[in-house]
Simulated assay, not measured.
Amino acid sequence: MPETTSTTPPAPVPGSAADVVRTWDARADHYLRLFRDELESKPFDLEALDAFAGRVVPGGRVYDAGCGPCGHVTQFLTDRGLDVLGIDLSPRCVALARRERPDCRFAVQDHRTLTEPLDGLVAYYSLHDQPRAGLPATLAAWATALRPGGQLLVVAKEGTHDGVIDDPLGSDLRVYWAEFTEYELRRAAGNASFRVDTCTVREAYENEIPTRRIYLAATRAA
């Protein structure tokens, strides 16, 4: 009998789409336990999301890009009369979001390869899984999907880190973690044909990772 050997598939490239699936499928349940109701204790975030919803055309089509397992941003925007789809690369995140928010819509999809024309897009802490070098291409993809006048809201953690670290959320995983500066976000948005309307930075709340947050609101130029 010939001797057989088993091989372990190589680990995905850190920060790649496959790596996002690997890490988020593994920690989606943990994240849901931590952040299921996080918006209730974040008045600044609620105001930013409400302002975004008010800028989108009534009933407009919106993607919650990187919705995660909670689906709370999708729910918030849906409750304000928008036609919202929460998308995430992680099948586990999407399955949990569907369970948590049965009256909302969710799908497994890469927010960097959008095809449907949109009136708005929210990226609520969904950029930190990919290398900072990919930011211009991501913003360009969103600009392609958004109609002229379409609204963008990006929420990201401020900083300069760009690489693999121990999971700040407390799982046992090593994960890709990227932070951004206000200048980087403004520049990438401007280069991608967005008009930056506001860009605000706030300090972390007491129960958050101690990193400042950036909130960039922009409009897709004609």
Score class of each variant (00 low, 15 high):
residue 80 R to F: 08
residue 133 A to Y: 01
residue 72 H to S: 12
residue 47 E to M: 04
residue 197 D to G: 02
residue 43 P to N: 02
residue 216 L to R: 01
residue 87 I to S: 05
residue 135 L to I: 02
residue 59 G to P: 09
residue 4 T to D: 08
residue 124 Y to A: 05
residue 57 V to G: 06
residue 156 A to L: 01
residue 58 P to N: 12
residue 141 A to G: 15
residue 39 L to G: 06
residue 208 E to F: 03
residue 59 G to D: 10
residue 25 D to A: 10
residue 192 A to F: 00
residue 148 P to N: 08
residue 215 Y to D: 01
residue 49 L to G: 02
residue 120 G to T: 11
residue 185 L to Q: 04
residue 157 K to E: 15
residue 122 V to Y: 12
residue 145 A to I: 09
residue 182 E to L: 01
residue 180 F to P: 01
residue 196 V to H: 04
residue 120 G to E: 14
residue 206 E to C: 00
residue 112 R to Q: 08
residue 148 P to D: 08
residue 119 D to N: 13
residue 202 R to C: 00
residue 63 Y to I: 15
residue 94 V to E: 10
residue 211 T to I: 13
residue 182 E to H: 00
residue 87 I to A: 11
residue 40 E to L: 13
residue 128 H to A: 13
residue 130 Q to L: 14
residue 188 A to K: 02
residue 119 D to K: 07
residue 212 R to I: 01
residue 69 P to D: 10
residue 78 T to I: 04
residue 1 M to Y: 03
residue 182 E to A: 05
residue 196 V to C: 04
residue 8 T to E: 15
residue 16 S to D: 12
residue 28 A to Q: 12
residue 125 Y to C: 07
residue 66 G to A: 05
residue 97 A to T: 07
residue 98 R to D: 07
residue 72 H to C: 08
residue 26 A to Y: 13
residue 158 E to S: 06
residue 145 A to V: 08
residue 180 F to K: 01
residue 38 E to D: 14
residue 38 E to P: 00
residue 126 S to Q: 10
residue 143 A to I: 07
residue 111 H to F: 15
residue 96 L to W: 12
residue 89 L to S: 13
residue 114 L to H: 08
residue 198 T to P: 01
residue 91 P to T: 09
residue 80 R to D: 14
residue 112 R to C: 03
residue 12 P to H: 03
residue 124 Y to K: 07
residue 101 R to L: 07
